[in-house]
């Protein structure tokens, strides 16, 4: 199998299979998680729940008081690489084209040069976050194979995508194929690893917001 065949497979059947497993996995996992349900709280609420769930979804995106100072790498590194990933995934012209072809939805792209810069910054941030995971006692203590694995699986698509655009190391065709394959790996493992937090994060924050708002505490 040469590079072009690999690329053809990767962006054809490969992407189909990966997207299939991704959709299947996410739907299955979300139903599995949220169908467990929870009992209604019989204690009279201090205040009406209102939009407390949504508030917490938003509020938890901002570092709590004092935390930025105690864990600057986690917060700044985390912010940079999450925002970077979002920009790269959703605002890079070729990615928008792909999404448009998949869904019919389309929006303006950011200039390629800007995305290029964002990519480099994102890669650096991810490396910094990895080093932090190795250095910080609590982080290192908590880390399992899954943490290293998911880091690599997230890092690879960014790296290979950047290398493909920059024409580094390998011929473009092969690099593009590797990029797409790495994205497919990411899609396949996402529902079954901690990466599912991309979805459940909203549910978790929402629950925390509702449960605590019942007692009158904005969390």
């Amino acid at each position: 199998m040469d590079a072009l065949e690999l690329l053809t497979w990767a962006r054809g059947p490969g992407l189909n299979i990966a997207l299939g497993i991704f959709v299947l996995g996410v739907v299955w996992r979300l139903i599995e998680i949220y169908s467990l349900g929870r009992r209604t709280d019989l204690a009279p609420a201090r205040q009406h729940a209102g939009a407390s769930g949504l508030h917490t979804v938003l509020r938890r995106s901002v570092p709590p008081p004092g935390m930025l100072r105690s864990s600057p790498v986690s917060y700044i590194g985390g912010f940079v690489f999450h925002i970077g990933l979002a920009l790269i995934v959703f605002l890079f012209a070729p990615h928008i084209l792909l999404i448009r072809d998949l869904t019919g939805l389309s929006w303006p792209a950011l200039p390629s040069q800007f995305i290029d810069m964002v990519t480099v910054v994102t890669l650096v941030a991810m490396v910094v976050v990895l080093v932090d995971r190795i250095n910080k006692p609590a982080k290192r203590f908590l880390s399992t194979f899954g943490d290293w694995f998911t880091w690599a699986v997230t890092f690879l698509p960014v790296l290979t995508g950047w290398m493909a655009v920059q024409h580094l190391l390998l011929p473009y065709t092969l690099m593009l194929a590797l990029h797409i394959l790495s994205v497919e790996l990411l899609l396949v493992v996402l529902p079954f690893t901690k990466l599912i937090h991309a979805f459940t994060l909203f549910g978790s924050r929402w629950y925390a917001g509702r449960i605590n708002a019942h007692k009158g505490v904005p969390v």
């Binding site: 962006r11 189909n16 139903i31 169908s35």
Partner: peptide, 27 residues
């Protein structure tokens, strides 16, 4: 176009149904 998969929507819908089935079964 080079970076466009062959026919993902059909696969996506089937996958969503299969996922829902699996999810409901587990639930």
């Amino acid at each position: 176009a080079l970076s466009m998969p062959a026919d993902p929507l059909k696969m996506g819908a089937a996958a969503a149904v299969a996922g829902a089935a699996a999810g409901v079964a587990v639930s």
